[in-house]
Simulated assay, not measured.
Amino acid sequence: MTLISIFVGLLSAFFLFASSIKIFGWQKFIFDTQLTMFIKYGLNRQIMMLVGLAELFGAVAIWFQGSVFGTLGALALLGTSIGAVGCHLIWDTWQEGVPAMITGILSAVVVWS
């Protein structure tokens, strides 16, 4: 159970950071880089914000392990990770999808537990 708690903490920290940038755009370099990728994928700023909101929900809800919210949070993070991996595999190189692959694996482990 300690390993799952570590995974939850890592996922929550990563996705709180990532979602805050997608929602508020407070870190200009990362925001501009991500927005450029979203546009390359045929998506717009509004979709980027929706992804950020899904990540924010997942990053908060994942702490409620043992309840339906914890599972839904981990599934939200798994879904955004799978979507990111797909976009990177289609439009980028697989290497750019490695962080999403890692968060996807961690999310899947949390969902499974």
Rank of each mutant, 00 (worst) to 15 (best):
M1E: 12
T2E: 15
T2M: 15
I6V: 09
V8R: 03
V8D: 02
V8I: 12
G9M: 03
L10D: 04
F14M: 15
A18C: 03
I21D: 07
I21A: 00
K22R: 00
K22N: 00
K22A: 02
I23T: 11
I23D: 03
W26G: 09
Q27A: 11
F31K: 02
F31T: 01
D32W: 05
D32N: 08
T33F: 05
Q34E: 01
Q34M: 07
T36Y: 12
T36Q: 10
F38W: 13
I39K: 08
I39F: 00
K40M: 11
N44A: 06
I47H: 12
V51Y: 09
A54Q: 05
A54H: 08
E55R: 03
E55M: 00
L56S: 10
L56R: 03
V60C: 13
A61S: 13
A61L: 05
F64C: 05
F64T: 11
S67G: 12
V68I: 15
V68L: 15
V68N: 14
F69R: 01
T71V: 14
L72C: 04
A74M: 09
A74D: 14
L75I: 02
L75N: 06
A76S: 11
L78C: 06
T80R: 09
I82N: 03
G83W: 06
A84M: 12
A84P: 14
V85H: 08
V85T: 08
G86D: 06
C87W: 07
C87Y: 12
H88C: 13
L89K: 05
L89H: 10
I90R: 12
I90P: 06
W91D: 09
W91Y: 10
W94H: 04
E96K: 15
G97E: 01
A100K: 00
T103P: 15
G104A: 01
G104D: 03
I105W: 11
L106E: 11
L106P: 04
S107V: 10
S107K: 02
A108Q: 14
V110N: 03
V111I: 07
V111C: 04
W112V: 12
S113C: 14
